[in-house]
Simulated scan of single mutants.
Amino acid sequence: MQNFTFDNKTKIIFGKDKEQVVGEESVVYGKKLLLHYGGGSIKESGLYDTVLNSLKEQNIEVYELGGVKPNPRVSLVREGVTLCKENNIDFILAVGGGSVIDSAKAIAAGAKYDGDVWDFFTGKGAVTECLPIGVVLTIPAAGSESSAGTVITNEDGDYKRATGSLLMRPQFAILNPVLTYTLPSYQTACGVTDMMAHILERYFTNEKNVELTDRLCEATLKTIINNAHTVIEEPTNYDARAEIMWAGTIAHNDLLDTGRIGDWASHDIEHEISGIYDIAHGAGLAIIFPAWMKYVYKHDINRFVQFANRVWDVEIDLNNPEKTALAGIKKLEQFFSSIGMPVSLKEVDINDEHFTEMAKKATERWPLGNFVKLHADDVEKIYQLAR
């Protein structure tokens, strides 16, 4: 087990009607607030009015910036940075899912930086100061509500890149499973896939003697698997929604990282797909993760056997561990298909036109992954496996 420091400052406020306390939680950080959100869904649901009323009760001056899209754009982030600087904003409140939260994090960092916010995503700048952020979560998926990272897309060149800093962790996150009742089933399934991928990135490690976090990863995966069909088939099942929502946070709050080094190649490989084709991140991960597994499983067959057995209850074939490992990968693919996710690029009408370009872009700064180091030719082969 690696040495580690676990530091997560995010206050989780979980349960029914908890969005009503957003004003009293926010006022601690100042009187001038940027309310950041996506489209019209929070207004249609009444959440916008609830949040605004709670903020006004605390005499908070509210500035607004809506319009966040899936795979959030740096152009809107730049608008937010300008708005914050011109109005001396004290605090940013993100109301939405991972895209909104990621956009808010980038704005929060950019508002305290003299250069262009994209510098953080290219390695030209480092986050040394950040406006405080709060969250009202509406889509359990990305885990950004208590993570230290953000992912932003630059329309100039279709680059989708990540950056991170402990300063970006939200001060608080309000999680009310009821707010997820109206999510379309496809969006719910994309969220399930995203949170599972966050766990799998951590699970496939070269670190030995990490039994506790192995078991935590496996338990969280099994909880998601056990509740996924229920939330899709019974969208107002509070208990199942609560399990999925909390699992999504645990999947990406760094607890499952402790003592181990994760991989993260699949996320970087997928970012090139959604950067160019603008597909849902969860859908892209459902395609890429099994393909990555098929490419690297021989590196540590025993870990893949453990995954198959403990997560999918595949009986271990002592005479043929490779058969067991492949059965686990197949089970993952079948599960993704069963919740309506694509498991091939063909299913989302993506051909091999940009494979070489995407592989080069994905690896232009360094090889991908830690479990197995991947260069451009490896990444292109994974895209081919995903066809």
Rank of each mutant, 00 (worst) to 15 (best):
K32Y: 06
I12A: 09
I13F: 02
R387S: 15
T213I: 12
A265G: 10
S103T: 07
L93Q: 00
D7P: 00
G248S: 14
L255P: 12
A280D: 11
K346D: 14
G282W: 01
N320H: 11
S146F: 12
L255N: 09
F6H: 13
A247E: 04
G15K: 08
D377H: 11
E315M: 00
R387E: 14
Y63G: 03
L93C: 02
N237R: 10
S165Q: 12
C217K: 04
P184Y: 10
I199A: 06
I350N: 01
K222N: 14
I382G: 07
V305K: 01
D49S: 15
N59K: 15
F336W: 12
L35P: 01
P235F: 06
D317N: 15
A228K: 04
K361H: 04
F289H: 01
F120L: 05
H375W: 06
T236K: 14
M245Y: 09
F289S: 00
G40I: 15
N71G: 12
G115K: 03
C190M: 08
N53Y: 04
I316Q: 05
M341V: 02
I329Q: 06
N59V: 13
N3S: 11
E380I: 05
L167P: 09
E25M: 11
A162C: 10
H36P: 05
P321D: 05
M293A: 08
K31E: 14
L368N: 06
Q2V: 08
